[in-house]
Amino acid sequence: VTTYKLVINGKTLKGETTTKAVDAETAEKAFKQYANDNGVDAVWTYDDATKTFTVTEMV
C-alpha cells in the first residue's frame, strides 16, 4: 500500500489530500470521485516519481 497525493488547482476548490491505495490506478479512481463530488472538472496529470496527481481546472 502506497500513499498518493492529490493537488487541486480549482476555480472554487484548492488544496491537497492524500489516499492510501494498492496502485496508482486505484488512487486515481478515488481522487476522480472526490473531485467529481466537489464539482471539479479539470485536466489531470500524474507524476510517478512523487506519487502525486495534480488536477487543474480550466478557467
Rank of each mutant, 00 (worst) to 15 (best):
M58K: 12
T17S: 08
F53W: 05
A49Q: 09
T19K: 04
T2S: 10
E16T: 13
K5Q: 04
T50H: 04
E25V: 10
K11G: 14
T17D: 03
E25W: 10
V1A: 09
Y4S: 02
V40M: 11
A35P: 02
A49I: 09
A49D: 10
E16R: 07
F53Q: 00
T52G: 00
W44E: 00
N9P: 04
A30D: 05
F31N: 00
D48F: 06
L6A: 02
V40D: 04
V59F: 12
M58Q: 11
E57A: 07
V43G: 04
T26Y: 04
K32Q: 07
T19W: 09
E57P: 07
A24Y: 14
N9S: 08
V22W: 08
E16N: 07
D48C: 04
N38P: 06
T19R: 05
A35S: 05
N9E: 06
K32C: 05
W44N: 00
L6N: 01
Y34R: 03
Y34F: 12
A42L: 13
E28L: 15
L6R: 00
V7C: 07
G39C: 11
K11E: 08
A27C: 03
T17A: 12
F31G: 00
T56C: 07
D48Q: 08
E28G: 07
K11R: 13
D23S: 08
D47A: 02
T26E: 11
K29F: 06
L13N: 08
E28R: 13
T54E: 04
T45L: 07
F53M: 00
D48L: 04
Y34S: 03
T45D: 08
N38Y: 15
W44I: 04
V59S: 11
E57V: 09
V43P: 04
Y46I: 01
V43R: 07
N9I: 14
Y46N: 00
G15K: 13
A27D: 00
T54H: 07
I8M: 10
T19L: 14
K11V: 13
I8D: 01
K29S: 06
E57T: 06
N38A: 13
T52F: 01
T18Q: 08
K14A: 08
D23A: 03
F53G: 00
M58G: 10
D48P: 12
K32R: 14
D37L: 15
D37W: 14
T45G: 04
K32A: 05
E28S: 07
T12C: 15
K20A: 09
T54N: 04
V22R: 11
T18I: 08
V1G: 09
N9W: 13
Y34T: 03
V40W: 15
T26P: 01
D48N: 07
W44Y: 02
K5L: 07
N9T: 07
E25D: 08
N36A: 14
Y4T: 01
T50L: 05
T45I: 08
D37T: 12
E28D: 02
N38I: 15
K11A: 12
K14R: 12
I8R: 01
D47K: 01
D37H: 10
Y4R: 01
E16I: 13
D23K: 03
F53Y: 04
T26D: 06
G10N: 06
V1M: 14
Q33W: 05
V22K: 11
G39A: 08
V43W: 07
E25F: 10
V22G: 06
V43M: 09
T54A: 03
F31R: 01
A24G: 03
V55E: 00
E16K: 06
V22M: 09
K11S: 12
D48R: 05
K11W: 11
V40L: 14
T52A: 02
G15W: 15
K32D: 01
D37C: 14
A30E: 11
K5T: 13
D37I: 14
V55D: 01
N36F: 14
I8W: 14
Y34G: 02
T3M: 10
I8F: 13
N9L: 13
K14P: 06
A24T: 07
T50D: 03
Y46F: 04
E57D: 10
V59E: 13
E25S: 10
T56N: 07
K20P: 04
L6V: 03
D47S: 04
T52H: 00
Q33F: 06
K51S: 03
K32E: 03
A35F: 15
T18G: 02
A42Q: 08
V1Y: 14
T12L: 12
T2N: 10
T45M: 07
T26W: 05
V7F: 05
T18C: 13
T56M: 07
T52W: 01
T26V: 05
T3A: 04
K20S: 10
V59Y: 12
V40P: 06
T52Y: 01
A35Q: 04
T2D: 09
Y46W: 02
A21K: 02
N36H: 14
L13Y: 14
K20D: 12
T19H: 07
T12W: 14
K32F: 05
W44R: 00
A21V: 03
T52P: 00
F53R: 00
D48G: 06
T26I: 05
T19C: 14
Y46C: 00
K32I: 08
T45R: 06
K5G: 01
T56H: 07
N36V: 14
T45W: 06
E25P: 07
K20V: 13
T50Q: 04
D41E: 11
V22H: 09
K5F: 14
V55I: 13
N9C: 14
A42M: 14
Q33R: 10
Y4V: 02
N38V: 15
T56G: 05
T18N: 04
K29T: 06
T3N: 04
T19Y: 14
W44D: 00
T3W: 08
G15S: 13
Y46A: 00
A30H: 14
A30V: 14
E16V: 13
V43I: 12
Y46Q: 00
T17N: 04
T45S: 12
A27P: 01
G39K: 07
V7Y: 06
D48V: 06
V22N: 07
Y4L: 01
A21F: 05
D47R: 01
W44A: 01
Q33D: 05
K11T: 13
T52I: 04
A30R: 12
G39E: 06
V7S: 03
D47P: 00
T18E: 09
T50G: 03
K14Q: 11
V59I: 11
E25M: 10
N36S: 14
N38C: 15
T19M: 14
K51W: 04
E57F: 14
M58E: 11
Y34I: 09
K14S: 11
N36T: 13
A35T: 12
L6C: 10
K5V: 08
T2L: 10
F53S: 00
E28H: 12
G15R: 13
T56R: 05
L13E: 07
V7E: 03
K51D: 01
T12Y: 14
K5R: 12
T56I: 09
Q33K: 13
K14W: 12
A24L: 09
T26G: 06
T18M: 09
A27Y: 01
V40I: 14
V59P: 12
A42Y: 14
Y46S: 00
K29L: 09
T26K: 04
D37G: 09
E57L: 11
T50A: 05
K20C: 12
A27S: 01
V59N: 11
K29W: 07
Y4N: 02
T56Y: 11
D41W: 11
K11I: 14
E25L: 10
K20G: 04
T2M: 10
A27E: 00
A24S: 07
E28F: 15
T12R: 08
V43T: 09
D23V: 02
E57C: 12
E25Y: 11
A49M: 09
Y46R: 00
V43A: 06
F53A: 00
A24M: 13
D47E: 05
N36R: 15
V22A: 10
A49W: 06
T18R: 05
V40F: 15
K20N: 11
D23F: 03
N9M: 13
D41V: 12
E28W: 15
V40C: 10
G15D: 09
T19F: 14
Y46M: 00
T18S: 09
T18P: 01
E16A: 08
A30L: 14
M58Y: 12
Q33A: 11
E28V: 05
K5N: 04
D37E: 13
T17F: 15
L6M: 08
V40R: 06
F53N: 00
Q33E: 08
T12A: 09
T18Y: 15
E25R: 11
